[in-house]
Amino acid sequence: MRTRVLVAAATGALALTALAVPAAQADGGSGDIRITKVVVDGDNKVAIGTGSAKTLSVSVTATDGSGILGAESFDLKGPGYGYESTGKPSCKKVSATTSTCTASVKIDPRTDYLGNAMAGTWYVGVWIDAKDGDYIWKDKAGSFKFQRGTAVTTNASPEPVKKGKTITVTGKLSRANWETLKYGAYSGQPVQLQYLKKGAKAYTVLKTVKSSSAGKLSTTVKAGADGYYRYVFAGNSASGAVTSVSDFVDVK
């Protein structure tokens, strides 16, 4: 990872080095070369936790009548002065006129000074050359969500329970704090309680619960049949989606 952001000692604010942000460039190019697709990490969503490194893949497809010659490293830029640069892309021919160029960058929250303000929408800057001398530069060729990792738990009780009695389902929603390298309570978020009847193939949504100021989740349901309960957080632009481990309840 090529993070170019330092943490200021006195205030905790983000301070830039002399190379913090690449020189501004306007979109430009020549000829008939076009970028047709940009994909980051498969689904344009990247969730980073606190304990391990993650390698992001960036894939850019481009076309030109003469074919694609190659690409420069891709720039990834986001809020909070976030900036990354991939390694040299490798381009694979799709057809005589089209190629997909792929590169990656490794991000480690333990060593790369990520700031929570960096979470949100990031953009991919791309420079690609064609075989006939055409080229294209786009500062925002594509976008992706750079998200703080999340975690959620589920506990349904009592176990076992008599049919018709009340089951209390509790849990906790937490989110990675990149600055402390710990997970903390994630409050005020909608979380679905889902249920899978024993023998069924798909979960159903029972209700939506909002996390408390301490990130806690709690609701009740009536015991009907043996089955599995789980909490599911859909995520948002700055926080990753997550599904808890399911908890089975035996109904007598």
Results as ranks from 00 to 15, higher is better:
Val205Ser: 11
Ser218Met: 04
Val161Met: 08
Ala156Arg: 02
Asp134Thr: 06
Tyr123His: 11
Ser57Arg: 14
Glu179Gln: 10
Met118Trp: 09
Arg175Met: 07
Gly80Gln: 01
Lys210Glu: 11
Gly28Cys: 11
Val46Tyr: 13
Lys207Met: 06
Trp178Asp: 06
Ser244Thr: 09
Asp134Ala: 12
Trp137Cys: 09
Ala130Asn: 14
Ala223Asp: 12
Lys172Pro: 04
Ala214Ser: 13
Cys101Trp: 11
Gly29Met: 04
Val249Ala: 11
Asp132Phe: 04
Lys131Phe: 04
Gly115Thr: 06
Lys140Ala: 13
Gly199Ile: 00
Ala119Glu: 12
Tyr228Ile: 00
Ala53Ser: 14
Pro79Trp: 01
Thr166His: 10
Asn116Leu: 01
Gly28Val: 04
Asp27Trp: 03
Leu6Phe: 02
Gln189Pro: 00
Pro109Lys: 09
Ala238Gln: 15
Trp127Phe: 10
Cys101Asp: 14
Pro89Asp: 15
Ser143Thr: 11
Asp112Trp: 02
Val249Pro: 07
Ala225Trp: 08
Thr100Leu: 03
Ala10Val: 00
Tyr83Pro: 02
Leu56Tyr: 15
Trp122Glu: 15
Phe233Tyr: 12
Ser246Lys: 13
Val245Ala: 14
Val5Tyr: 08
Gly240Ile: 05
Lys45His: 09
Ser66His: 14
Gly31Phe: 10
Ala103His: 01
Pro89Leu: 02
Leu217Tyr: 08
Ala176Ile: 02
Gly67Met: 06
Ala26Met: 09
Ala234Tyr: 09
Arg2Leu: 07
Ala225Leu: 05
Val205Met: 07
Gly70Thr: 12
Arg2Asn: 14
Val38Pro: 05
Tyr231Ile: 01
Gly149Met: 00
Lys88Phe: 07
Lys162Ile: 02
Lys145Gln: 14
Asp75Pro: 11
Val60Ser: 11
Ser99Arg: 12
Leu14Gln: 12
Trp178Lys: 10
Thr220Lys: 11
Thr50Trp: 01
Thr150Gln: 08
Ser95Cys: 10
Asp129His: 15
Cys101Arg: 07
Thr3Gly: 08
Gly42Arg: 05
Glu84Pro: 03
Ser104Phe: 09
Asn116Met: 01
Gly49His: 05
Lys45Gln: 14
Ala141Phe: 01
Ala13Trp: 01
Val161Thr: 02
Ala23Val: 04
Ala47His: 08
Glu159Ala: 05
Ser52Val: 03
Thr100Asn: 14
Ala47Gly: 10
Gly215Met: 06
Lys201Asp: 09
Met1Pro: 07
Thr61Ile: 00
Gly164Lys: 10
Phe144Asp: 14
Thr153Pro: 05
Asp112Ile: 00
Thr166Arg: 15
Val221Pro: 07
Ala119Tyr: 10
